[in-house]
């Protein structure tokens, strides 16, 4: 417990958290603006000329409740990226600023240090989630009413999506801590994670779009293995036709987080601190 407090104090006593906070807010505003435009487009899309399957997908996506969940979880794409980078820095800064010596002198049982970092990372991930969610709860009803749609806050699917969004923030925080241990250099970790996240997400989306159909549905369903796509699947409102169920997205992310956390702990225990 005192180690968790120490890790939280480490975050509070440097400027990293509020720099990332501001960046997250800016990106949130941007995403929400885009989602607003998308929402007004998907709510009254014309499905004539599409094949039946696509038309069905578009129709379900255009249902008010699904548009609403998208808006209520707005900011997730960049939000979890920022959380991951922040928690990765929690690990890498120990080596970058040579504080690892002090940290492991205080706590020779290194696995407890990793646990404290995971805990502190999750606390911050959830904090980012709470803030963006509060903002979304304020803004989304306004957007929806401007589109002549109700706030949808009576829908269970909306609240489930919001809660699963929180889970996504927490899991990405864990992924960040683990990744920060694997890639010890601060700069390399930040750049690599950002690139993998953004390019991996876009690249995978494009690849699956281009060649996915050749292999059939089972291959399309492999999309969920891409972490970014998995967390988006988690927060979709109702089941979307042609997509794996939501729990699969959660399971995929949890497996990634477990692997990152366990491998990170083993490496931390073995490494010589010089």
């Amino acid at each position: 417990m005192k180690l968790l407090r120490a890790e939280l104090l480490k975050i509070w006593t440097t400027s990293t958290w509020w720099v990332f906070g501001i960046v997250t807010l800016v990106l949130w505003a941007l995403t929400t603006g885009i989602n607003w435009l998308t929402a007004s487009a998907t709510l009254d899309v014309d499905t004539t000329g599409m094949d039946a399957e696509t038309a069905e997908q578009v129709r379900v996506a255009g249902e008010a409740v699904n548009v609403a969940t998208n808006l209520y979880t707005s900011g997730q794409f960049f939000g979890v990226l920022m959380v991951m980078l922040l928690t990765a820095i929690l690990s890498t800064s120990e080596y970058f600023h040579q504080t690892a010596t002090t940290t492991f002198l205080l706590t020779p049982r290194r696995e407890t240090v990793v646990l404290a970092k995971l805990g502190a990372g999750v606390v911050f991930g959830l904090l980012f989630w709470v803030i963006t969610t509060v903002l979304n709860l304020i803004v989304t009803p306004l957007i929806l009413s401007s589109l002549d749609v109700g706030a949808q806050l009576g829908e269970g699917a909306v609240w489930r999506a919001i809660l699963l969004n929180g889970l996504a923030y927490g899991i990405w925080a864990i992924l960040g801590v683990g990744a920060g241990i694997l890639i010890r250099s601060q700069l390399a970790a930040t750049i690599t994670l950002s690139l993998i996240y953004v390019i991996g997400f876009l690249g995978a989306a494009i690849i699956f779009q281009l060649i996915g159909d050749r292999f059939g549905d089972w291959f399309q369903n492999l999309q969920v293995l891409i972490p970014g796509l998995a967390s988006q699947l988690m927060v979709s409102g109702t089941e979307l036709p042609g997509n794996p169920p939501r729990w699969v997205g959660a399971a995929v992310l949890i497996v990634y987080a477990l692997v990152a956390g366990i491998v990170g702990t083993i490496i931390t225990k073995k490494r010589d601190i010089t």
Binding site: K2, L3, R5, A6, L9, K10, T13, T14, S15, T16, S93, H97, Q98, T99, T101, T102, T103, L106, T107
Partner: peptide, 18 residues
């Protein structure tokens, strides 16, 4: 061995807390 952006007092507070 201290974070460049942390004050001396906060550096010691982190250690004291842990």
């Amino acid at each position: 061995g201290a974070h460049k952006g942390r004050t001396g007092r906060n550096h010691l507070r982190v250690i004291a807390t842990a």
